[in-house]
Simulated scan of single mutants.
Amino acid sequence: MTQDPTRAELPAAMQEIADDFADLLAPQRLELLLEFSEGLPELPERYAGRLGEMEQVHECQSPIFLAVEVDEEPVDPGSRAVHLYFSAPAEAPTTRGFAGILHEGLDGLTVDEVLAVPEDAPYRFSLGEAVSPLRLRGMVGMLSRIKRQVRLKTQA
C-alpha cells in the first residue's frame, strides 16, 4: 500500500492495524473491530471502581473513560513510555473496538511518538463504510484526549 508523502506517518503498530483493516471488506472490518473490542485489556486494580479518577470521552456515544500514565524513568535517554487504560461497557463493542485499536497501537510508545500521531489517524482504519461518522468522531475524541493528557503529564 503506497503512502501519501504529504501525510504524517502513523507509528508502526498503528500502520499495521490500518493495513489489516484496509485489506478487508466492510463486513470483515466490523468483525476485526469486534476482535479489538474483545481484546481490550481490563482495567488495572488501581482504577477499578474509580472512574472519577479517569477522564470521560464525551464525544463517544457510549460511556468510555480513559487514563494515561507516563513512566517516570525514560525507556531511552529522553523518552518516557506512555500507558493507556480504558473503561468501556461490554455492550458498546464499537467504542471498545476503537479503544482496543488505540491501546494496541499506542500503549508503550514514547511521549514523542504519541504526540506525533496525526490527528486524522482514526480515519485511516478504513472504517468509514462500516461505522457512522459520528462513531468515528468518538475515536478522534479519544486520541485528542490521550494526547492532551500526555502533554499535561509531561508539560510537552
Rank of each mutant, 00 (worst) to 15 (best):
D19K: 14
G105P: 01
P118T: 08
P93C: 07
L84H: 01
A116Y: 10
E59C: 09
V111R: 12
E73K: 15
G52Y: 12
G100C: 02
E55H: 05
E35K: 11
E113W: 12
R80K: 15
V111G: 09
E42S: 12
E9N: 09
D23V: 03
E35A: 15
G52V: 02
L10E: 10
G78C: 10
G39F: 09
Y47S: 06
M14S: 12
G108N: 10
S79Y: 01
R50H: 14
A13R: 15
T95L: 05
F21Y: 14
F86Q: 05
A18K: 03
Q61L: 10
D19A: 15
I64M: 09
E53A: 15
E104G: 07
E38M: 08
L84M: 02
P89S: 12
H83Q: 10
F86T: 01
E45L: 01
A99K: 11
C60E: 06
Y85P: 00
L40Q: 02
A81R: 09
R46V: 04
A81E: 04
V68Y: 07
F65K: 07
Q61N: 06
A26E: 08
L10I: 08
E73W: 07
E35P: 00
E113M: 13
A48M: 12
G100F: 03
D107V: 07
S37V: 00
I64P: 00
E31T: 13
D76V: 09
L115R: 14
G52E: 13
E38A: 07
L33H: 05
V117R: 12
F36Y: 15
Q61E: 01
L109W: 13
P44Q: 06
P63R: 14
Y85W: 12
G39P: 03
E45S: 05
G39Y: 08
A18M: 06
Q56K: 14
A26K: 11
P93H: 12
I17G: 02
V117M: 12
T110N: 04
H83D: 07
Q28S: 07
E9D: 09
P74L: 01
S87C: 06
P118G: 10
P77K: 11
E69F: 03
L32A: 02
G105I: 05
D112V: 05
Q61K: 08
R80T: 11
E45M: 03
E55V: 05
L84W: 03
V68C: 04
L84S: 03
A12R: 15
P77F: 08
G78Q: 11
E73V: 14
P63Y: 12
D112N: 11
L115K: 14
E72Y: 08
G39S: 14
T110V: 09
P27E: 09
A26Y: 08
L51D: 02
Y47Q: 04
D71T: 05
A48I: 12
H103K: 10
V111H: 08
I64C: 03
G100Q: 02
E72L: 08
I64K: 01
L115Q: 11
L33Q: 09
Y85E: 03
P11V: 08
Y47K: 02
F98L: 04
G105Y: 05
